[in-house]
Nucleic acid binder design. Structure first.
Lengths: 123, 123
DNA sequence: CCCTATGTTCAATGTTTATTGAACAATTGA
DNA sequence: TCAATTGTTCAATAAACATTGAACATAGGG
């Protein structure tokens, strides 16, 4: 309850909060991976990011991403699916999200953007 | 000396540091005013921002803006002139600075972007 | 040479932040 | 019903941050 108060409407989304959210390497990686996925499924499970940090730390970052308006969560059974609020962001700050994602892509190696990506387990 | 160690080369400029810099309302206002000025003189005196905060707090923010690669300072007598490192930013992260500035312009009233602008003194 | 103006540096303060592990809640499947 | 899975909440910690005022440095004008 202390971590779920906000969830801004489109108009309530604030530029400084969005930039601050994107300035954290873990959150930037989350947003980046969601953006990559956008053409395919537009959603990822929380667990898909486990490579980036511990679960409780990720929950903290997810909350921040939701509070600033970048992400939305859909509950499905014991899973949560996250997606970018792409339309709201583009309406509110045209070109911003794309510019950030392209900038991140340029530095994909420097930033460890794909650290959390599907590790294939050899059973 | 403790406050002037970095001054990244173009290649050393890091996306998270830039976004973090821009996420602070005072620094965003500084960058915004410099961007507005760009067509005219491309430079502003430190003192032109005195409306945004106290001098020592501004010096702190100026240092951050320099350290992340967004700004450059030119000393001229007892004054310091600041300008955006526009070419470096555009080369490094194409479209990013413009997207941020346009986004800030959209919210110019909400963010207090022009708070530090030339107050005309009577007398 | 002093006095003023301009900025920076430093130390101190209180706030916010990221990170950790343990506890908790909810759902699923045996 | 029991156990396993998924993810959130909570408390604690250390680090980073923004802000303030005082001290300092430098340059320029009388």
């Amino acid at each position: 309850m202390s971590r779920t108060p906000l969830h801004p409407t489109r108009e309530q989304i604030e530029l400084p909060m969005v930039l601050d959210c994107l300035s954290d390497p873990i959150r930037l990686a989350i947003v980046y991976q969601l953006a990559q996925q956008e053409r395919v499924s537009s959603e990822l499970r929380c667990g898909d990011f486990n490579g980036l940090s511990g679960k409780s730390n990720l929950a903290y970052h997810f909350a921040k991403l939701r509070e600033c308006g970048l992400m939305q969560t859909r509950v499905a059974g014991t899973n949560r699916f996250m997606r970018l609020r792409r339309e709201d962001m583009d309406a509110r700050f045209p070109g911003l999200l794309d510019a950030v994602i392209k900038s991140a892509a340029k530095d994909a190696d420097r930033l460890q953007l794909m650290a959390g990506c599907e590790v294939v387990e050899a059973d």
